[in-house]
Structures are given as structure tokens and as C-alpha cells.
Simulated assay, not measured.
Amino acid sequence: MTGGKTVLRVPSRRHWPRGLAILHEDRDILVVNKVSGLLTMGTDRVKQSTAYYLLREYVRKGNRKSQNRVYIVHRLDRDTSGVIVFAKTPDAKRNLQDNWHDFSKVYYAVVHGSMDLKEGLISSYLAEGKNFKMYSTDDDSNGKLARTGYKVLNQNDDYSFLEIALLTGRKNQIRVHLAEKGHPVVADKLYGIKEKGKLALHAAKLTITHPWSGARMTFEAGLPSYFSDLIDVGSSSV
């Protein structure tokens, strides 16, 4: 027992679902590090190549009649890598979602150009257009408040490396805010420049309150190696 909760032994890497690294598992939650390119949940066209499907099969351990399940608490965009928490019971899902605004979410990003303000807060109302892209609006009746804090950790002639505090959780929020500031995330084909490579946006740290024990827990996932191909990221890379 740790902090009043039963912690399950994390299996060896060879038993991890494809595209996912298991960071923590107990009877209530399952926390993973997702690779870029993997959907969190299914779409009309993609059902099986998702984190949800792979983890559902993982907890069933090959038994199709198993009652074990996972429940989606939040999501990352397909091309965003990093930490995601899934619930293993309906009560855990409800608790996590009800308290989501109290949790800390830290991201890292590499963006184009050099930002004039090295630390700041971007705030706007985000709305969704007919093309399903998000955009900022001054009309608070048409959009939802989105707040993104950032700090420049390093920069070179081409890029800036940012630590980002996600203060609200709107669709594509970080990508939209940075693009509208003139500094799109590297390889953001939707809001930025159509270029080769993987999206340089990573959910690095998530701090939650455990839904059963009440313990404060922080989960971290080191940066993918392609970040350091763009800029010196110091000790944040793996």
C-alpha cells in the first residue's frame, strides 16, 4: 500500500501496449505516456489504433469476457505526446473530471522564432469555426475563456523552447494561442507551417489528487528525442 491505495506492479516494457509507456497503475487510475501520432479515443474512421482501445485490451489481459475497463478522463491531440490519466472505475472518472480545474498541467513546446516577451499569459475566448479549426474571438458569448501561461527556457536563431502552464483545457488551445502570437508550434500543420517532422508539443507533467486516497500525485514524462534535434532542451530530454 502507498498513500492508502493499492499500487500494481508496472509490467516490463515488453508488455506495454504499442505506443504507450505505463507510468503508474492502481485499482482506480492508469497513467501512461503517449507517443505522437496516436489518438486518445476513436473516431468514425479509426477504432483500434487509439490509446483507449489499447488500454482496454491491456486491462482485459486477453480475456474478452473480462469486466475490467478504462474510462477516458481527458484527451491529448493525436500529434501531442505525453502524460494521460485514465480512470478504471466510473466513480474515479467522475471524481477526476469534477476536480480537473484544480490539477496542474505542464507542457513543453518548441515554436518558430524568438518571442519578445520571455514570460507571459495569453488569454482569449476560443470558438470553433465551420472548418473545425479553433480561433480567438472578442465575443464571450461565442467562445470559451482560454488561458495559457508560458516561459521561454531557451532560444536559438530559429526556435524558442517554452514551458507552458495549461490553465484551461480548450480544444487545441496551446497551438492556437501560440500561432496567433506569430510563433506556431514546430510541425503544426493545422495552425502553423506545413513542414516535415513531428509536432513539438509534449504534455510533460500532470499533478492530480488521487480519486480514492486523496493523495497529491505528480506524473512526468521526459521529452521525446526529436525536441533536442531542434534546440538545446537541457535535462528535459530522454
Rank of each mutant, 00 (worst) to 15 (best):
T148M: 06
T148Y: 04
G149K: 04
G149P: 07
K151H: 11
L153P: 02
L153M: 15
N154D: 14
N156M: 12
N156T: 12
N156Y: 10
D157E: 15
D158G: 01
D158Q: 14
Y159P: 01
Y159M: 09
S160C: 08
S160P: 02
F161D: 02
F161V: 03
F161E: 01
F161M: 07
E163G: 07
E163L: 06
E163A: 13
E163S: 14
L166W: 03
L166M: 14
L166A: 10
L166H: 03
L167K: 13
L167S: 01
T168D: 09
T168E: 08
G169F: 04
G169W: 02
G169K: 05
R170F: 12
R170S: 06
R170Q: 13
R170Y: 04
R170H: 06
K171S: 12
K171W: 06
K171I: 04
N172P: 09
N172C: 12
N172T: 10
Q173T: 13
Q173W: 10
I174K: 07
R175G: 13
R175E: 13
H177G: 11
H177T: 12
L178V: 09
L178K: 06
K181Y: 08
K181P: 00
H183M: 06
P184S: 10
P184C: 11
V185P: 04
V185T: 11
V186F: 11
V186G: 06
A187V: 12
A187Q: 04
A187P: 09
D188P: 09
K189R: 15
K189M: 13
K189C: 06
L190Q: 14
L190A: 13
L190F: 04
Y191T: 10
Y191C: 07
G192D: 03
G192W: 01
I193Y: 12
I193T: 14
I193P: 01
I193A: 00
K194D: 15
K194M: 08
K194F: 00
K194R: 14
E195I: 01
K196I: 00
K198N: 14
L199W: 03
A200I: 07
A200F: 03
L201E: 03
L201T: 05
L201I: 11
L201H: 06
L201P: 09
L201V: 10
H202L: 12
H202M: 11
A203L: 05
A203W: 02
K205N: 12
K205V: 12
K205G: 00
L206F: 09
L206D: 04
T207K: 13
I208L: 14
I208T: 06
I208D: 05
I208N: 02
H210F: 08
H210Y: 05
H210L: 07
P211R: 03
P211L: 09
W212A: 14
W212E: 15
S213V: 11
S213R: 02
G214H: 09
M217P: 01
M217S: 12
T218G: 08
E220Y: 10
A221I: 09
